[in-house]
Simulated assay, not measured.
Amino acid sequence: MVDVPPPFIPGAFVGTAHHYRVRVYFEDTDLSGIVYHANYLRYMERARSDMLRIAGIDQRAAMEGGEGTWAVTDLAIRYRRPAKLDDDLLVVSTVEAVRGASVVIAQRILRGPDELTNGHVTAAFLSPEGRPRRQPAGWADRFTAIMNGETIPC
């Protein structure tokens, strides 16, 4: 008999913030056992992608349908404390601004009550030709609802 693993548990919204858990694995660390700096960006990217999926923003359908895709156009990150092997981290993401073709998301990576990293990301929606384009219908409304703590229209 084979045990069936529990279903995948994604992140979740807690008020206006999206919470996403990450475990630090050996492959995430450098020779000193500390998380390599670029991996914090990967954790943040996973959290943003999960937040969009939960909000009903189907990035894959937009890309495959020829509407376009998101691209990071601005990023600021600050490293405050190191994460280490086997740490249980929480990535907290909040929408700070919504524009016609872009969104600004603030993110913090926490280990318990300690903030390890924080950053701000601006993502622009681009046409297949790589030019800024208005977000697909309804996406800006979803981001605004998230920002305001409203029920996400699905």
Rank of each mutant, 00 (worst) to 15 (best):
R53G: 01
Y36R: 04
Q135L: 12
R46V: 10
D28I: 05
P113Q: 15
D50S: 14
A55L: 04
R48I: 00
T69G: 03
P82G: 07
V72N: 06
S49Y: 07
P7A: 11
N148W: 00
D28H: 10
S49E: 11
R78K: 13
I146K: 03
P7G: 04
E115S: 07
F125Y: 13
M51Y: 12
S127M: 04
R42L: 11
A12G: 01
A101Q: 08
I57N: 02
A145K: 06
A106S: 13
G100C: 09
D141C: 02
V14D: 12
F8D: 11
Y36S: 03
P5V: 13
D87F: 02
T144I: 10
S127G: 08
I57H: 00
G138Q: 02
Q59V: 01
P7L: 11
I109N: 02
F26Y: 15
A62M: 10
R142G: 06
P128C: 09
D87C: 09
D114P: 04
G138C: 03
A17G: 06
R48Q: 07
R23E: 14
I146C: 01
T151Q: 12
Y40K: 01
V2T: 14
Y20S: 11
D3A: 14
I77G: 01
D87Q: 05
D86P: 09
E129D: 15
Q59H: 03
S49V: 02
E64K: 04
F13W: 04
G112F: 03
T151C: 05
L126R: 04
R80H: 15
P6E: 12
R80Q: 15
M147V: 03
Y25V: 06
H18N: 09
L41G: 06
R134D: 09
P136K: 00
F26M: 01
L52D: 01
D58V: 03
L116E: 08
R42G: 05
S93N: 14
V2D: 09
M63G: 00
Y20A: 07
A47Q: 08
R108E: 15
Q135V: 10
R78E: 14
D3M: 13
D141E: 14
L110M: 15
V92S: 13
L41D: 04
T144S: 10
I77K: 00
A47G: 07
E64D: 09
